[in-house]
Computed example of a mutant assay.
Amino acid sequence: MSTAQTQSSIPMKKQPYPFWLGGLAATIAASITHPLDLTKVRLQASGDKRMVESIKKTYRTAGARGLFDGISGTWMRQMSYSMCRFWAYDESKKLLGAGKDAPAWKLALAGSMAGGIAGFVGNPGEIVMVRLQGDFAKPPEKRFGYKNCFDALFRMVREEGVSSLARGVGPNVFRAVLMNASQLASYDFFKAELLKTPYFSDNIVVHFTASFAAGTVATTVCSPADVLKSRIMNASGPGSSSTLGTIRAALKTEGAGFMFKGWVPAWTRLQPTTILIFLTLEQLKNGVDWSRARGVTWL
């Protein structure tokens, strides 16, 4: 066999996908589901009791545009936290040797590592998003009144100090660890399990089914940390950011059920978001493959 034939028979190593694909997919998904995310935050951080009533209240007081209050904060959060978590997850899988058929514990460990990194890096964007979304649910005299995500970031540093960017970082990192260990890892796990059966192939049906399962798992696992994060980040004033203090106060007035307050809107928001993220990500990857096959080397 000639040298040329030998070289052509060796499969070329596939290039990694651009690190920003996950952040772009998450931004697209979060933009579509923003009204549901807005409602979830307001249920967790305010006195609103029901999802539909909260949506009606927002529409009645601010119109259709009000359903997209704070969307610049959502974009900032996705392009920091989500971009970082997808990149860190892929790198963590490489570090752990978690291939296509990796066991669930190894995927969960990679997700936990990614969540810890992304939760810390994305904390400022998380605070900005939560404050922008929750602002109009407060009485006028208690509102922050931020114009956009950048105004929020600069004013926080100027008025509350640089340390304010770390407000709630503990529960946020904890939630990010739980989210990535459950959402990213379970998607890969369910997808791999489905592809082992003779009934499925790597297409949109598998992507939808795996992401639906991942969304349900992630909502349940993350609910307690999500509630704590929203309450602490929305708080202001000395002593209001204590995690233990928030837990004690909530247990005293609401009981242990407070940890799952807003589960239905959280599931209603996270489920389509999870599905949209992974469906979009898979299509973006297909687009990159298509472009590379036609000589577009920068993708």
Rank of each mutant, 00 (worst) to 15 (best):
S2H: 06
T3P: 00
T6R: 15
Q7H: 08
S8V: 08
S9Y: 06
S9V: 11
M12K: 12
M12Q: 15
K14F: 03
Q15D: 14
P16F: 08
Y17R: 00
Y17I: 03
L21M: 14
G23V: 02
A25H: 04
A25V: 07
A26K: 04
A30Q: 14
A30Y: 07
S31W: 13
I32V: 15
L36E: 10
L43K: 01
S46Y: 00
S46L: 08
G47V: 06
R50H: 13
M51N: 09
E53A: 14
E53H: 12
K56H: 14
K57N: 12
K57D: 12
R60G: 07
R60Q: 11
A62I: 00
R65I: 01
R65L: 11
L67V: 04
G70D: 10
W75G: 01
R77L: 14
S80Q: 11
S80L: 15
M83C: 13
M83I: 08
F86L: 07
D90R: 09
D90V: 09
G99D: 14
K100I: 03
A102M: 05
A102H: 03
L107W: 02
L109G: 12
A114F: 05
A114E: 09
G119D: 07
G122D: 05
G122F: 02
E126M: 10
R131V: 01
L132G: 15
L132W: 02
Q133I: 02
F136M: 14
P139F: 00
P139Q: 08
E141H: 09
K142F: 01
K142N: 01
F150Q: 00
D151M: 11
R155C: 08
V157F: 06
R158V: 07
V162L: 15
S163G: 15
L165Y: 10
A166M: 14
R167L: 02
R167E: 03
G168F: 07
G170C: 06
G170Y: 07
G170M: 11
P171H: 12
P171S: 05
V173Q: 06
A176I: 06
L178G: 12
M179W: 11
Q183S: 11
A185C: 09
S186W: 03
F189I: 13
A192Q: 05
E193V: 03
L194F: 13
L194H: 09
L195P: 02
K196M: 08
Y199M: 06
D202E: 08
I204Q: 14
V206P: 07
F208W: 10
S211K: 06
F212Q: 03
G215F: 03
G215V: 04
T216E: 05
T219S: 15
S223V: 04
S223P: 11
A225D: 04
V227R: 13
R231P: 01
A235I: 05
A235P: 02
P238Y: 05
P238G: 01
G239R: 04
T243K: 06
L244C: 01
G245P: 03
G245F: 02
T246K: 11
R248C: 05
R248M: 10
A249L: 13
A250D: 12
L251C: 12
L251K: 13
E254K: 13
E254S: 08
E254L: 07
G257S: 03
F258A: 00
V264R: 12
P272F: 08
I275M: 15
L276I: 08
I277H: 03
I277D: 12
F278E: 03
F278Y: 07
T280A: 03
D289A: 12
W290S: 13
R292L: 13
A293C: 07
R294A: 01
G295H: 05
V296I: 15
L299P: 00
